[in-house]
Design a protein around this nucleic acid. Structure first.
Lengths: 338, 338
DNA sequence: TTGAAAGCGCTACCAT
DNA sequence: ATGGTAGCGCTTTCAA
């Protein structure tokens, strides 16, 4: 635990020069910098975090607010937490985990004590209570997800409207006139913001493109495979030839199995596109086209925005939408003539 | 962001009295304390984290080392991370997330900068590289899980030997003479420390108790339901009437389904006990007896130990085993006469 | 029971 | 390009 004055002594320079050499906030001659770096390595010097926080204005710590409910989908949450910590580390930031039952308490605490430079909010609900905290707090806050009332907040999210539009267009372009959407659980539609957005966009866009009919199916699907299978059967009966999937990985599996059971081949008989999945549709038994929700993209953007806010640079409040990418896996085929 | 001197002024006392009143490290008269508490609330005072770290000796932050690999079982990891942060919060500690690819780098960094008071290590491998870091570091470290070479480390874990013994005993006591063990994936047996311990204990204990035969099945089961089903079929053919399960939730499901497919009822024909599962066997379609690995217990113990170490109080190095609890769900029945 | 003041180890301003 | 040094907001002696 060498301190900065030791480094200065060994390098034969002043304390301030060491500080500036390390922060780069003031030019230091190459020769001096060399000697300092050498001394740093020799002594295994690492600046004291507390002293930095106190003297400087930054803590180099972000808080990650993610209330871990028992019913939450662990893999997605993990993916986002991981992506976020990795994104933060790239910018020299550490991540403090806020999982309190009462998310507000944690956010208040770390903000009041100046422990973190900014708060990153995951798993955002439409009526998220953390919105109020963010507004009342002087600590910069970035939401990954879009609460209902977000006018003055900084929010990052996949552009689900664009994604849904692209999915529908791809299917319609291939001649599919009847499209079916399989969504997630009823709970997802209430707790989360984007499932309704995807649903509405799919319906609207299909109508715009003159797709004859658009069926929508959703329910407590995850816990009940039967519901999914039933939905698939109804689609097939109704002459649906294009399916948009906006549901967890397990659902995708079930759909594929059921189609096979019904003797429908993919993509020859039925085409499928997955929208906003955070899992890898490539590793499904049969890969399917996908417009994925890539945690990495959202998280890197969120961290970048947080850093801008911390630096006091202007950031547009409102939505920061990530442009979706269409991954072609061959699960959309031109509709066979009836 | 009121500061301590403001609180002192409002309360009409000195700065040091405020500090002592809040820390409780020196007796303060009831009247004075009241005035201070009032002032604190009035001003919404919250001590500055950086100043505390610098002046005091503690940061009130723990680091949680958990390398999040893509292949790791998200739900268990989440459960442990959550349990750990909750346990820490109870003791006024915040949790810093260390998920670096190179776990060692993160541990070195936070230790060197004095950012955290202690490191809590999750998902411990037999030959875990973090063992070396812990040894080389002055920062207290507590492992949840047991590396091969753990003589001088502080490790917390479920007493898997005891759990496995209890499971076997329960089955043997019920008259089962042929016991089958279904373990996790081959990878789990290499990457983790306890699967082999459970396997060996089951085999040994069964022999001790004079159980006529003990079959062991394990393999890349998670990814391949067929393997599990095959194992179950072999068990049934071999006259196994008691099954010990030591595998992820999905495997339990498959076993239940396969038994039903074979026309074997549970527990009338075959008894089952799950050992060391961190999921809730109660919520399976058919509840089964279980000796669960409760993240909460391990994590609270780990946090307590960390706090002892931080306080400089003596802590026995070596294993701190959590006593297992047998949960009776009615999945073990007396063996029917052949 | 309380107060005064000396640090804790940095950053960043003001000099040179 | 470099150095001196005044804080940052606490904790904790040392005194009273």
């Amino acid at each position: 635990m060498a301190k900065i004055d030791e480094v200065a002594r060994v390098a034969g320079v002043s304390i301030s020069t060491v500080s500036y050499a390390l922060s780069g906030k003031r030019p230091v001659s190459a020769a001096t910098r060399q000697r300092i770096e050498l001394a740093v390595r020799e002594l295994g010097y690492s600046p004291n975090a507390g002293a930095r926080m106190l003297a400087g204005s930054q803590t180099n710590i972000f808080a990650l607010s993610e209330p871990l409910r028992a019913d939450s989908h662990a893999p997605s949450h993990m993916a986002f937490m991981h992506a976020m910590t990795v994104a933060a580390r790239r910018r020299e930031y550490d991540m403090l985990l806020l999982t309190d039952e009462d998310a507000s308490a944690g956010m208040k605490r770390v903000a009041a004590s100046g422990l973190v430079d900014a708060v990153l909010v995951l798993d955002v609900a439409p009526d998220d209570p953390r919105v109020a905290i963010a507004r009342a707090s002087a600590t910069p806050t970035v939401f990954v997800g879009i609460p209902d009332d977000h006018g003055d907040l900084v929010c990052v999210d996949l552009d689900f409207e664009s994604a849904a539009t692209q999915a529908v267009d791809r299917l319609v372009d291939a001649g599919h006139e009847r499209i079916g959407l399989i969504g997630g659980s009823r709970r997802a539609y209430e707790k989360s913001n984007f499932p309704p957005r995807v649903r509405d966009t799919v319906v609207t866009r299909a109508a715009e493109r003159g797709a004859t009919a658009t069926a929508v199916a959703s329910g407590e699907i995850v816990t009940d495979r039967a519901l999914v299978r039933q939905a698939v059967r109804r689609f097939v009966d109704d002459g649906v030839t294009g399916i948009v999937l906006h549901a967890p990985e397990e659902v995708a599996q079930v759909v594929l199995v059921e189609l096979e059971a019904l003797g429908r081949r993919m993509p020859d008989d039925v085409s499928i596109v997955s929208v906003g999945s955070s899992f890898d549709t490539d590793s499904l038994p049969t890969p399917i086209d996908s417009i994925p929700l890539v945690p990495q993209s959202s998280c890197e953007r969120a961290v970048d925005l947080a850093i801008e806010l911390v630096a006091g640079r202007p950031v547009a409040s409102g939505l920061h939408l990530i442009s979706p990418t269409y991954l072609d896996r061959g699960s959309v085929a031109v509709r066979p003539l009836p």
